[in-house]
Amino acid sequence: MTPVPRLPDLTHADDRPVPPRLGDSSDWVLGRCWLWCANRHTWVLWLGPASTTGHHASLYACERCVDRLHHTIIDYSEAMIDAPLDATGIRVPLYLSPKDPPRPVPLLPQPSAGGTPIHRARHRRPRTVLGRLWHRLITGRDPTSN
């Protein structure tokens, strides 16, 4: 018979190891990570509220998963800087709503100050799988070939 999981025992709170820190205002608690590490029981940080249709919960992640999420956010920001412009001069988003009109063609690289299109060079390779996907989507080439 499989044992029933129990909530963390906090009776010996003074004996617990010091949690990781991501800044002075971070409040770490013992619990299960909700992200990529397969829900291991460790120190986790509250990331904010999460919701689906009709359901709400608090989202927690361990230090390793918070770091991975941080790098994904950086990759997205850099991908949006490199995003091409459509024929009307508007940056093409990486995500579209079903209500959005189809992407106009042709897509143009962003213009320089002189008005001629330029290809922006990445200062570093993407750090995450999603970052590499966004890079290929925007540039049409593999980031490892830079």
Rank of each mutant, 00 (worst) to 15 (best):
T2E: 09
P3G: 04
P8L: 04
D9N: 15
R16Y: 03
P17G: 06
P17R: 08
V18N: 07
P19N: 07
P20D: 09
P20K: 04
L22G: 08
L22K: 05
W28N: 02
L30I: 01
G31Y: 03
G31K: 01
R32F: 00
C33H: 02
W34S: 01
C37E: 03
A38I: 02
N39K: 03
R40I: 02
T42N: 01
T42D: 01
V44T: 05
V44A: 04
V44K: 03
L45I: 00
W46T: 04
W46K: 10
G48H: 07
P49M: 10
T52W: 10
G54Y: 14
G54K: 14
H55W: 14
A57Q: 09
A57C: 12
S58I: 04
Y60V: 03
C62Q: 03
C62W: 01
E63Y: 02
L69S: 09
H71W: 14
I74P: 06
I74K: 09
D75R: 11
Y76E: 10
M80I: 08
M80P: 01
I81W: 03
D82H: 01
P84A: 10
L85G: 02
T88H: 12
T88L: 11
G89E: 11
I90P: 00
I90W: 05
I90V: 13
R91Q: 11
V92P: 03
P93A: 05
L94K: 04
L96N: 09
P102T: 07
R103D: 08
V105M: 09
L108G: 00
P109W: 04
P109D: 03
P111L: 10
A113G: 05
G114I: 12
G114W: 10
G114Q: 15
G115N: 06
P117Y: 07
P117R: 11
I118F: 07
H119E: 14
H119M: 11
R120T: 04
R122H: 14
R122L: 06
R122W: 09
R122D: 11
R122Y: 13
H123G: 14
R124Q: 08
R124A: 07
R124F: 03
R124T: 03
R125I: 05
V129E: 15
V129K: 14
L130C: 12
G131F: 07
L133R: 14
H135V: 11
L137Q: 15
T139P: 06
T139N: 10
T139C: 07
R141W: 10
D142Y: 05
